[in-house]
Computed example of a mutant assay.
Amino acid sequence: MERRKFITATAVAVTAGSISTVLAATTEKKGPVYNHYLLFWLKKDLSEKEVEDFTGFFKILSTLPYVKSIQYGKPANSSPRKVVDNSFTYNLVIQFGSLEDLEAYGKLPVHLAAIKKYSVYWDRMIVHDSILS
């Protein structure tokens, strides 16, 4: 085989192998994920600094056991539509490996203390727990 054809064939084989490895990894079933999704509407009279300081709540939660992943943010500036509700101040997504982990997390003293400390910041908070496959 000519050198150029050999190099091309090798590159195609390596690329195809890499793609199939990535596809296998992304489609592999790893069991359900328990998703803990929260929306926070902070009080209107908070200063910008207080709104920013509220992220300390998320930082505390990120250190707790049982948490597989945690992300938080503010509403996206997406186009207004009837189905879009961007009225909240922050959202939080925490994922757990089992319902037992989610339930144990909810009872941790540090979790309860963080809620007590930061609940004075919000007017409204709502939780959606779901199982993701």
Rank of each mutant, 00 (worst) to 15 (best):
P75Y: 01
P75R: 00
P75D: 03
P75H: 01
P75T: 04
P75W: 00
A76G: 12
N77L: 08
S78G: 05
S78V: 11
S78L: 10
S78K: 05
S78A: 11
S79F: 05
S79K: 12
S79L: 10
P80A: 11
P80D: 09
P80T: 04
R81V: 08
R81S: 11
K82Y: 05
K82F: 09
K82I: 10
V83K: 11
V83H: 09
V83M: 12
V83L: 13
V83Y: 11
V84N: 07
V84H: 03
V84S: 06
D85P: 00
D85W: 00
D85S: 07
D85C: 00
D85H: 00
N86P: 02
N86D: 10
S87K: 00
S87V: 02
S87N: 01
F88G: 00
F88L: 02
T89Q: 01
Y90N: 01
Y90L: 04
Y90Q: 01
Y90W: 01
N91F: 14
N91T: 07
L92N: 00
L92I: 01
V93K: 02
V93N: 11
V93Q: 08
V93W: 00
I94D: 03
Q95A: 05
Q95G: 03
Q95V: 02
Q95M: 08
F96V: 03
F96P: 01
G97M: 06
S98H: 00
S98E: 03
S98K: 00
L99N: 12
L99F: 08
E100P: 02
E100M: 06
E100H: 06
E100L: 09
E100Y: 05
E100C: 03
D101I: 02
D101E: 15
E103N: 14
E103C: 03
A104Y: 04
A104W: 03
Y105R: 08
Y105K: 09
G106D: 06
G106T: 05
G106R: 05
L108K: 14
L108T: 05
P109Y: 09
P109K: 11
H111K: 11
L112Q: 15
A113E: 15
A114D: 12
A114Q: 10
A114I: 06
A114W: 06
I115V: 15
K116W: 10
K116H: 13
K117P: 05
Y118V: 07
Y118Q: 08
S119W: 10
V120Q: 14
V120R: 14
V120F: 03
V120I: 14
Y121N: 15
W122E: 14
D123F: 05
R124M: 12
M125V: 14
M125I: 14
I126Q: 15
I126V: 15
V127Q: 13
V127H: 05
V127N: 12
V127Y: 06
D129M: 10
D129G: 03
S130N: 09
S130K: 04
S130Q: 08
S130M: 12
I131F: 12
L132Y: 10
